[in-house]
Write a protein that binds this DNA or RNA. Structure first.
Lengths: 136, 136
DNA sequence: CAATTACATTTGTATATACAATTATTGTAT
DNA sequence: ATACAATAATTGTATATACAAATGTAATTG
């Protein structure tokens, strides 16, 4: 198989493997990777509310699904959503105490998983990999 | 953000971008990436039928979904499925002429897309990237 | 200022996937 | 041979995603 095709398939296989491992880590907490990503983004706001489009820009999924991710997080009491007073088209989403607690519980376990997934990499190699990924 | 976490997120973003680009290329042919992968595997058999589990081993999806991928391909007349005579638990799947024609039509366009996606990579860098991916 | 356009989000729908349970067949041990 | 376990594939169901269309609000323009 030609090198470019082989490389792209390789990428897909590895990314999928990583995804599966992380999903497995999150499963006991009954939270999907994408839901987790939303929570992380909201935590990064340090209390400042985020619009749906802001969250969406920082993720890989489509707007419509981001709405539904937030729906799920609301039903679990991990975030709150209110209409923006300044601009009633927008919506303001903030993480709750419960959401922050959940993230704190996950942090350590995820950190271990990340170390495990990358156990064969020296730090220099991680830098190298990031450089190569920048070329995409 | 710590290097390991950053690297894994980077991997996910890039893999997703690649996926989207390839899906876009396949879309006019009304075929998903996974359906396409099944067809490629079957072409690689050179006429020899493949069991469902054989196909599945070479893919990233679950058995149950491989069944449904084959269902879709049958409805498009791209593959045939027959019960294996030697072992009636097994199933034999072969690609049809129509399936082969579809693959031939896609080959060139996909090749161009692959070149485009990897346009910033020198050959040595592709080797490097593959070496790094092997560490996962 | 009424009509049109742009913006932000949501809803509808078809397809895709994960996971568990089920069916059908074959292999094995007593 | 009968019962039990193992194998191969399928079906049911809940969740996830993509894409298009719809809703509600704000900005612009003639």
């Amino acid at each position: 198989m030609p090198l470019p095709k082989r490389t792209l398939i390789h990428m897909a296989l590895v990314a999928n493997k990583i995804d599966e491992e992380i999903a497995t880590v999150l499963k006991p907490f009954d939270i999907s990777i994408q839901q987790f990503n939303v929570l992380r983004i909201l935590r990064g706001q340090n209390g400042k509310p985020a619009n749906l489009s802001t969250i969406n820009e920082r993720m890989v999924t489509k707007m419509s699904n981001t709405t539904r991710l937030v729906d799920k997080l609301i039903s679990k009491d991990f975030v709150n959503r209110t209409v923006c007073l300044k601009n009633r088209r927008k919506v303001e989403i903030v993480i709750t105490e419960g959401g922050l607690n959940m993230l704190n519980k996950i942090d350590g376990i995820l950190f271990e998983a990340e170390k495990r997934i990358l156990k064969n990499f020296a730090e220099a190699e991680l830098h190298e990999l990031n450089e190569l990924l920048n070329k995409f």
